[in-house]
């Protein structure tokens, strides 16, 4: 067994999207998934692809981007914008070198807390398998 050192998954989230206030501590760490740290924005549309690159470069295991349900942005189109940027349909996009397997986006309304937690856990698991594959090589 190779000892894998603990790394974090960073969640960049709109403060109006899925409600995580009761799920995390003051540092933004999720109680049910301590690998995940949450950073809030006024709108998911504020998230820059650069920030995702910075997070991965700084050593984060993966990045979850989370906004409201598509169609329901409080600022009208923020979640559509970042979605298109992630998919490379709207500039600025992610650099080619970014490992796209380590980025996932969720569009969840305020009431979908359970769904978020289960998706976050699934993503953490997905990243672990990714790591074991790269280490095996």
């Amino acid at each position: 067994m190779v000892e894998t050192k603990k790394k974090t998954v960073i969640t960049l989230i709109c403060e109006r999207a899925v409600d995580l206030d009761r799920e995390m501590d003051e540092k933004g760490i999720l109680k049910d998934a301590p690998d995940v740290t949450v950073i809030k924005f006024p709108c998911s549309g504020m998230i820059q692809p650069l920030m995702i690159e910075a997070a991965l470069k700084a050593g984060a295991e993966g990045v979850i981007v989370c906004g409201c349900q598509i169609g329901d942005c409080y600022y009208r189109e923020g979640n559509k914008m970042i979605r298109e940027r992630l998919l490379g349909e709207r500039p600025p996009g992610l650099k080619k070198t970014v490992d796209r397997r380590r980025v996932v986006a969720l569009w969840l309304s305020r009431l979908q807390t359970k769904r978020f937690i289960s998706e976050a856990k699934e993503f953490v698991g997905h990243l672990q398998t990714l790591n074991s594959i790269t280490e095996a090589k």
């Binding site: 998919l87 980025v103 996932v104 998706e119």
Partner: peptide, 11 residues
Amino acid sequence: DAEEKTVLPLK
């Protein structure tokens, strides 16, 4: 087509 989760396509 309605999506709650976007997985990025591999390039």
